[in-house]
Amino acid sequence: MAAEASTGMNERVIRVRLKRQDGPDARPRWESFDVPVGTGSNVTSVLQWICAHPVTVEGKNTTPPVYDSGCLEEVCGSCTMVVNGRVRQACSALIDHYCPKDGDELTLEPMTKFPVVRDLSVDRSRLFSNLERMRAWVPVDGTYDLGAGPEETPEAQQTRYVLSTCMSCGCCLEACPQYTLETDEEAWDRAFVGAAVISQARYFNMHETGSSLKKVRLTELSGPGGVSDCGNAQNCVNVCPKEIPLTESIAAIGRQVTAHNIRQFFSGD
């Protein structure tokens, strides 16, 4: 872990306001830190620096802040947090963008749609639980050699590829006005699944083998917490760090669900 927060160019000191919370039931509080930064610094390197120097601006010793991080190149989805009021990945949040001048202020908060574990770290289990609910997998017949998979046009591959880059970071859920905090695990099967999960359902429905579970997925998406709970605010697509066409996924699933229900109404099964 690097203790340096900058590469040495354009050195300056910024004021970081951090929302702290000792545990899920603890009261949140604010702490401020003065952090030396430079060109190339990002929110993660700032947090690394604070961990190595956990002293507030008042000179009070405090505990190193708890936060999630992983790959630091925006493919693992770990470091989602609320930076200056908006959700994003901390690793790609460059300080030059947020605090170009000496003394500029940066505010870091945990996501609000997931239960806080501690400080900036939240519990996103609901997202993974909903992927399971959506049968987000291709039901292969095991790992024995059964030849290649279904052929696919390059166009279809390109569409699927983009959907497959979803890293379950949760930005789309945090920004969604229809996705609300739900701490009761029992309720996760009825609460809104959100754009990420709807988009994954579309991804698996597009695959020849994956589509064998299409009916199950569409029935699930017709019910409470399914695609009709979407309010079309379209924040999801605006905050997605991977620029996944989430609103197209929602509309595509809307179409599938419409057809599925009409078919079901007349066929009766």
């Binding site: 609300t180 924040n235 605006n238």
Partner: peptide
């Protein structure tokens, strides 16, 4: 059942 957030996310669609 929803909770608006136009303060933080000032998109036209929002």
């Amino acid at each position: 059942s929803g909770k608006g957030n136009t303060g933080a996310y000032r998109y036209q669609s929002n």
